[in-house]
Design a protein around this nucleic acid. Structure first.
Lengths: 338, 338
DNA sequence: AAGATTTTTGATATCGATTTCATTAAGCTA
DNA sequence: TAGCTTAATGAAATCGATATCAAAAATCTT
């Protein structure tokens, strides 16, 4: 039985060994209904026996489809900000898994410049069929232009009303509302919002918080601390300065990420202010240590797993010629001890 | 002057427009010395004018080189362990940057199974030229076999003496020694090691700590807590249990990651044990918040940026047919307040 | 069983680059 | 300037798959 045991490198090899033609091998391997069942199984057997694997590069060239998605991550800003938050990492994991399920390769790219030339080049050189953009908060104009040129792309973040591309993001407005309602229900009336509102996400959270105050019958005060970036240290500094300056202490802090929430709690504790007794603190993202902080942090959780799947699903629809709408990801308040 | 303003899609287009042949265009674009300077500049001008970009897929097919490196990340274990440590992320960033500098594409893959079939398939289908493996601590046998089959790969981690492949990792033994010496110098004599020694890295840190004790003239005691995984919670639980059980309290804790160090400090504080007064604590990795914890955590820092560069450099040498040695990354003690 | 249909199969062209090898142009020597 | 060497160029083959379209085989009619 054992014949030629050499590895079959190309379809031509398999064709010869199975005594059929190249196109038939191709059809058999791609489960085309055009090939007779008996032929298919013979071809598959030969292919398996000789360890044949299609050359995907040749396949891509001929099909003019790469089955590859470029995922753009802005590592630089991530490192500059000393972000400890594993959120982006989770997002990447979710995208990776979803792409794997669809047999799409993931080309990871970290563009160095803002002008989008790197993206255009990837498309021109046929390195990928489409783009998933993670963490490019400040580059909306570039993305608009890129999308306008017909590039298939999906962006993680907060949708601008004017965005011409498909955006998938957490429901930041709802997140802000959830925090506000939680404060109201626990009798708080003087809020402090902490975040970098130059990011649209953060701004939307602020607006959500405001909407709760506006709709309430109570008279609510909202203070603001404008952060730059997401580092623990900048939040810590801001908290310290804030305590020096204020006349009346707030009874609720909505920090737009858990790291900042921790920094504020830490400063409060050092200043003898009790959390949640004197001040309630709500964070965002539900990072792993939020649960184990002392006190455990009440926070807004986004479903990163779902996020990855939705990003990929939207992009696939775009590649199929549809124009899917932007989407918001499930968002919920995790009530803990702060 | 402006002639045909249509985009040039293929080399044949450029060739026609520049009134030369395809091979000449190819040579001009790849800076071959075979082409006359005047010709080259004319071709480049035409290519630029018509927005031509080489089709990398066709290039790969012909050259039998993909200029793509597959980077394997084990997201699953990462998520299971609730790792907050941005270490892997930094490593990925470093690798991404180093690959970018060398014009190599980064194919991110997250193998689901342990048997290495996914790796073999990537190679067989010519999805990548080589592999950088991050975070596969427990799969040495598979990697050995894969390397033995001639696959070009470099692994992040701790080198086994028997490893047949190139390993780049932090100098864990030195890391353990640095912690031990720090303890000795500050007069500590009763150490506690906390970590998951089923990971070789952690084991090596333990051995480094031991070596300092052995070489010292003092009589040193070393206790051990064997963790499973890297989560804050498991460390927190372990610390709590430990305090219940021990008779004599250690005066130094070497935690094999910062998250565990934080958990222990937190438990100590709640139990009224002063850090660093009663117990000194040293962590590992220098995560961003280590600096801002209270007290700021003394820790061992690895140079992740260098790590990425070294991983890529080693792999490139392997692809050039050399067999570079395993390497250790710079490792230093960052002395802070614990 | 001849003729019409439907399934299967295969010969050939193609995707877009690079390599090989032959050829022409340019530069040098005497 | 003939003759020789070297530098530039181009025609054709190639990488390994799939698409197209025509031909052969199988199945169905009557």
């Amino acid at each position: 039985m054992p014949e030629d045991t050499k590895r079959a490198k190309t379809m031509a090899d398999v064709a010869r060994l199975a005594k059929v033609s190249k196109p038939t091998v191709s059809r058999a391997l791609s489960n085309s209904p055009l090939v007779k069942e008996a032929t298919r199984s013979r071809v598959l057997a030969v292919a398996a026996e000789h360890g044949y694997a299609v050359n995907r590069v040749a396949q891509k060239l001929r099909q003019k489809r790469t089955n590859t998605i470029a995922v753009s991550m802005d590592f630089r800003s991530h490192r500059q900000n000393h972000i400890e938050d594993p959120f982006m990492f989770d997002l990447l994991a979710g995208v990776s898994e979803a792409l794997g399920d669809r047999n799409q390769d993931l080309l990871l790219c970290a563009p160095n410049h803002n002008d989008g030339a790197a993206f255009r080049q990837i498309l021109a050189e046929r390195g990928a069929d489409g783009f998933i953009i993670l963490g490019q908060g400040h580059r909306e104009a570039m993305l608009d232009e890129f999308a306008a040129s017909g590039a298939p792309l999906v962006v993680w973040g907060a949708a601008a009303d004017t965005a011409s591309y498909c955006v998938v993001g957490s429901d930041n407005f709802l997140g802000g509302q959830l925090a506000g309602r939680y404060f109201l229900e626990s009798g708080r009336r003087h809020f402090l919002f902490v975040g970098d509102t130059s990011f649209r996400e953060m701004h939307q959270r602020r607006v959500g918080l405001q909407s709760v105050a506006d709709e309430s019958n109570e008279s609510i005060i909202i203070d603001d601390i404008e952060l730059r970036g997401f580092s623990y240290s900048s939040a810590h500094d801001a908290a310290t300065r804030y305590l020096d300056v204020i006349e009346k202490q707030p009874d609720a802090v909505f920090a737009s990420n858990d790291t900042a929430a921790m920094a504020f709690i830490s400063v409060f504790r050092d200043a003898g202010i009790d959390v949640p007794g004197d001040v309630s603190v709500v964070g965002y993202n539900d990072i792993p240590s939020a649960e184990y902080f002392s006190p455990p942090i009440t926070t807004i959780r986004q479903d990163t797993h779902q996020a990855g799947r939705v990003l990929v699903a939207k992009l696939m629809r775009i590649l199929d010629g549809e124009t899917p709408k932007s989407a918001r990801i499930r968002t919920e308040l995790i009530q803990r001890g702060s």
